[in-house]
Design a protein around this nucleic acid. Structure first.
Lengths: 232, 232
DNA sequence: GCTCAACCTTGACGTGGGTCAAATATTCGT
DNA sequence: ACGAATATTTGACCCACGTCAAGGTTGAGC
């Protein structure tokens, strides 16, 4: 019996399309690894060596300019696939935001396995297409929305993303209270804003009674309608 | 003999992985279509009905907010694949920028065909992964670069993208003179800037002797080093 | 409980790029 | 070639957001 049998993301990660024999084989070329918050797994610009499934925790994908400006270009949640299969360099760093647990593969092993399992490639294709759609939607926010709209949109996104994954039920309701897995600085890096602007917008929403901020990381949505209006 | 035998993108589009029998079969479910500049093929938010290969010309992928702000989230060149296979809604409009010619499929037919041809899905996966990388890189530009950096980066990108596709040789040199396939407004929509700002930055680069602007659409790169420096 | 180091908030101020308006340039139809 | 429509440039102005600079909070380690 492989450790996959008890894996919490067994039915949500790309492994879901594999039968138990195939999962066993995949397990044979992978290994678990724990990451501490802040630990990097993949570095921008390096040759693509590793790919992984996220089991637990959250990671950021990021790029930066030479002069130190950083942009978070994606966030990986449990069951998401990370890394760059099929050859190229990895163009984005991957860093744990929280303590995390991943199921790690040597890229070459994974590529070979995928080549032999079209169903896995199909699953990966569907995910990648969905991720591309989401990324493109985010471009509109980065390029065109005001700071207020960005922060409001971000909070709404968080409230639906952070729903506990109770099995694979997709009809989960958004949360009205949650803990942000990001620091203010990281929120700025996601939204293309400075930390000060993020802080000011959050304070404003709080002052207007739209949200509550019980503590540094917690957010409470008090008036969802107003928040949606602010999101534009 | 199918029309694919003489297709200029036969060896560069996703069809390249298919043998002549398979191409024949794919050809059976597709059809050619000419688009005029400005003509839309796919509308944001609609059910995904069509997918296509670009044979000739260029198309934009775009989203907008309700209040009329638009953002171009991608540009499709000859041999690129457009549309949203596998189920979902299409989240971006697709509109011809120039007169264009595409090889069109009903999404359902294409999905079925792809399901039966893993090599095609693999090719599509590789393309989608590459497109996702490029899109994420663009996010850094949208979120963090100044107007000057944006315009300079854009011009450099154009100078390498607009190289005539002489077969599949990838080692083509960037052009030092080319015609933009975009209006100033569209450049603004790509860079997340207003038309005025684009115009001012172009004028500035011209005044500084970095580029020449022989006419509305033409661009001449006079000092590539300086342009690269401006791109940050 | 105290200290130190992050982290976050708040304020004052400056500026890049948006907005509005008008002048030019180019294209197109006749 | 002429006039109308469209695209681009240019200028004046202003405001949202970045920058710089203090404070406040929070929490981990002692």
């Amino acid at each position: 019996m492989s450790s996959c049998d008890t894996c919490v993301v067994r039915n949500r990660a790309i492994c879901a399309v594999l039968d138990s024999k195939e999962v066993e084989a995949l397990n044979g070329i992978g290994r678990r690894r724990n990451l501490e918050a802040g630990e990097a797994l993949i570095w921008e610009g390096e040759e693509s060596v590793l790919v992984a499934n996220v089991i637990e925790g959250m990671l950021k994908l990021s790029t930066g300019t030479e002069d130190g400006r950083e942009q978070i270009v994606g966030v990986a949640y449990p069951s998401d696939f990370i890394g760059r299969p099929f050859g190229a360099r990895t163009s984005h760093s991957v860093t744990a935001l929280t303590d995390a647990r991943v199921c790690l593969f040597a890229r070459k092993d994974f590529d070979r396995f995928a080549g032999e399992h079209p169903a896995l490639e199909q699953k990966l294709l569907r995910r990648t297409l969905a991720e591309l759609d989401r990324t493109r939607d985010w471009m509109l926010l980065l390029a065109r929305k005001s700071a207020e709209e960005k922060v409001a949109t971000f909070l709404l996104e968080m409230s639906s993303r952070l729903v506990e994954p109770g099995c694979e039920a997709p009809g989960d309701k958004p949360l009205d209270r949650f803990d942000l897995p990001f620091s203010r600085q990281q929120i700025g890096d996601i939204l293309g804003l400075t930390i000060e602007t993020v802080s000011r917008q959050m304070t404003r929403l709080k002052r207007d009674g739209v949200i509550g901020l019980p503590n540094r990381r917690a957010v409470e949505i008090l008036d969802r309608q107003a928040l949606e209006a602010s999101a534009g």
